[in-house]
Structures are given as C-alpha cells and as structure tokens.
Design a protein around this nucleic acid. Structure first.
Lengths: 249, 249
DNA sequence: ATCCTGAATCTTGGTCCAACAAAAAGAAGG
DNA sequence: CCTTCTTTTTGTTGGACCAAGATTCAGGAT
C-alpha cells in the first residue's frame, strides 16, 4: 500500500464523517490554507485583500471575513486594518489560549497539574544528566538568578516558570516542551497564589540552586528527590479558598 | 494580598496589553461568553437566535455571526441550521484539532514524538506499578485483545493508540492524559505509516502482552525496558519518503 | 372525540449585496 | 523632512433571499 493510498484512505474517512455538509465558510478556510501553502508564504507576508479573496474563490466578502475570523482564532493569520491579513506566528499562543479557555482551577486540578509536573520533570532527569553540557547548566544558573532581581508576585511567578521551562528545554524534546508550555497559564497562576500566600523568593532560588547542583554532579537520585520535594512543597499552602478561575491568566 | 487583588492585577495586565482596541466582534465574544455563564447554561442548551443576540447586544447579525464563528472554532458552541447555536462539549476536540493544525510530520518530528512518548510512558511506570489494581491490568488485556479483531491499517492504528492511551490513563493524572490525547492525530498517523509498511498486528499484540505481564509482576525495570524497546522499534521502518502531512489525521 | 398524517407556514441559519465609517498607507505639496 | 490630502482596505451595519428544518393546522381514519 503506497503512501498516496494511505492519504486517500484518510481523506475518504474524513469525508465520510462529514457527509457533503461543507459550508462555504469551511470551504474557504481550506482554500485559504491551501493558498498559504501553495504560495509558500512566510510569517509576516500579507494575504490578498478580503475583496480579492472573495473574487478569487467566488465568495462574498462576508463569507471571506467569517473564514478569516476562524483563521484568526487559530492563530494562523493576524488581520490589521488597512494592511489586511498577514501570516502570523501566534499559532502556539492560540493553542495555549484555547487550552486554558474555560479552565477553572480547583484544588483537585492543582494537585493534578503538580502531579503532571512531577512525572515530567522527574522523568527528564536521566536525559538531562546524560546530555546537558556545562554551558546548559550554567544557563540554568543564569535563569535562576533572575528571580532575585524581580519585585512582585507576578514577575516572580514568571521567573519561576522560566526556570522550570528551561529545565524541560534541556530534555531536548520539542513535543514535550510544547505540551509543557501549554500549561503555562495554569502553572504561573498556581505559582502566583503560592507566592502571594508566602512570598519567599530566596527559598525558591536556593531550592533551584540545589537542583542545578545535583545536575552538575550528575546525581540522578538527588535530582529526583529534590525536584519531587520542590513540587510537593507548595501543596500545604493551597486551600480551597485560595484558588480561583484563571481565565485569561 | 488577597486573591481578589491577584485577579484584579491579572485583569489589569490583560487589559493593558489590549489597549482599548476592542472590536465589536471581540466584545460580542466576551458578551456571549458572559451570557453563557450568567444563564448557567449546560451542554446542549440553545443560545438565543442570531437575530436575538444582535438585538440583545446592539450588533448587526453579521457581527454576531463572526463572533459565533470564533466561539465555534473554540469548540464552545456548535451551530446547527434552524436549531441555532447550542452549547457544545467539543472543547477538547477543538484544542486537539487546533493543536494538529498545520503540523506537517517530518522524520525529525517523528523521532521527537516517539521521544516524548518514551519520556511519558516510561515515566508513568512507577505510578502504575504502585497503584494499578488487578482489574486495571485486566482491562489492559481487554483493550489489547481488540487489535487482533480488526481489519485494516486504520483500525489497527486506533486500537494500538487505545492501548497506549489506556496505559497513560492508569497513571491517574488528568492533565497528562489530556496532553497525551492532544497528540492522537500525530501518533495514529505514525502508527498507520508503520503498519502500512509492515502490517504485523500479532507482533504488536505480543509486545503489548509482555508489557502487561511486566506490570502484573510489578517489575519496573522490565516495564521500562519493554516499553522503550517497543517505542524504538518502529524507527527503522521510517524513511523520509514514508511520512507525509497528517492534516485532519 | 381522539389520534395520526401530511401539507402549508413560519422560523432560522447560510450567503450575498450595498453602503458608510474609520484608519492607515501612500501620494502630493510645502 | 514634515504636513496634508487622497485612496485603499478593513470594520460594521442593514437588508435581502434561499434552503432546510420546526411548527402548526386542517383533514381524514379509527
């Protein structure tokens, strides 16, 4: 079976579950996507104007606009008055925003997110210890030092997240990093609540330093222990009254 | 600092980065979202008609439609002709679709995704061994057995994914499961390509059985070894010519 | 009288057209 | 180089028509 046959099969399946109910707007979304690919446009390039798109694909300008709203929601294009629609690189932002959409943060999900982080951040230890260079670890020190220089709960939370993000980055896996970043709004919100309850950036910096030291010593047991303890630490400060909705966090 | 203060701060920040450039469509999206929350609508409930929404919020019907297209892209509502817009539970589907959007699968990303799976599926071993009941593991057997009963590359890929999904499910972490499911289109596409090249469902079933056996024996070393080898196995069958776009996979 | 049925009607989303306002880019003039 | 004017393009509105599905209602069967 050739790849083309596979693709045709897949297309037939998708066609079967959407039985010819294709609206003009959906068709336009596909056509515009194809246009982007065929012209090999890059980030920042401008699309044709709404009227041109309408004439090009035989659709009304309203239909074009509805299709562009969808592409905009997907972060594929950004549309500015007079400029028109330009190809955007906000795709990941859109995914993140959508992911966090309508996500109320309950104490249960707090524990859940921390559990996720424990699985991931402990799990990457072996890979970091095996593959991280001295420069990589020095960079971790740099990121960690920033937390001492900021004022305010919000900035501290972002620095804290940046450290853990840098850690995940060292795992060298793009998919993992993308997924971890999806949780950024949720994680930073959790950090904000924790730091508001008990604002001790010094402690955070110290704990991070110990984690980095374990990595420098290539001590995977110590790393696993320290990162687990670090992630479990905040749980005692989280009660049901401390977590609220994180809309647009 | 109270939680309310934190929320107000967060709102001020989001407001600051969107300096009063709120379009009528964006305003409508917010207003409709508020409407959903204020009326405490549940999945399946119908919104007012487009004309009513327009009158309610002093907007043209075209503007209402553009706002609805965004909500639809977000999976918040589903709009059926004559019925109108109804509250949808397709939010996660929308996230998944958006996540897979514009994701071409190169050999590099194939390796990346398999690397992600190795980190995750190895990492959850300890938790499964500690917490999975005999019934959980028996259920794994059940899921695994289905792969012997299906015909065709597509169904086999879905059964294969279902097994690994069940595995991740046993980790007992909702966040991890959600993130893993995000990759479903990509993973099943990879599986389809592999199985098309070399369709051996018997082998897959056998390997899965060995993995289950390791879990039943509470042997974490054997589990880690078997799952790693299982995930590395397909790499030899993947050349650059075998992987294509997984759009709408 | 009650219930079923089928046609007529009414509602609603899908699409299109025309128009005007606002904003921004580009041209023209100092 | 700066300012002003023109033009283009998006933002928004109102209205129109169609097709499909829901509703209503009349009429016949039981």
């Amino acid at each position: 079976m050739s790849d083309n046959a596979i693709l045709l099969t897949a297309m037939a399946v998708t066609a079967a579950q959407e039985p010819a109910k294709v609206s003009a707007v959906d068709r336009l979304v596909e056509q515009i996507r194809d246009l982007l690919r065929d012209r090999a446009l890059v980030i920042g390039d401008a699309l044709p104007t709404e009227r041109e798109l309408g004439e090009l694909f035989q659709a009304s300008r309203n239909t074009v606009r509805e299709a562009l709203q969808i592409l905009k929601a997907y972060g594929i294009v950004e549309v500015r008055p007079k400029i028109g629609a330009v190809l955007s690189d906000r795709h990941e932002d859109a995914v993140r925003k959508l992911f966090a959409f309508q996500n109320d943060i309950s104490p249960a999900s707090f524990l859940d997110v921390q559990g996720y982080r424990k699985i991931v951040e402990v799990g990457i230890g072996d890979h970091i210890i095996l593959h991280a260079s001295a420069g990589d670890l020095a960079n971790l020190d740099l990121v960690n030092s920033r937390i001492l220089q900021v004022e305010g709960v919000d900035d501290a939370a972002h620095c804290d997240f940046a450290f853990h993000e840098a850690l995940v980055m060292l795992a060298g896996n793009r998919t993992l990093l993308t997924n971890y970043r999806l949780l950024q709004p949720v994680i930073t919100h959790i950090m904000r609540v924790g730091k508001a309850k008990r604002p001790v950036q010094i402690d955070t910096h110290q704990t991070h330093s110990e984690i980095i030291a374990a990595l420098k010593a290539r001590d995977r047991v110590a790393y696993a222990y320290l990162i687990s303890r670090h992630l479990e630490y905040g749980q005692q400060f989280v009660g049901s009254e401390n977590i609220r909705s994180a809309r647009n966090g």
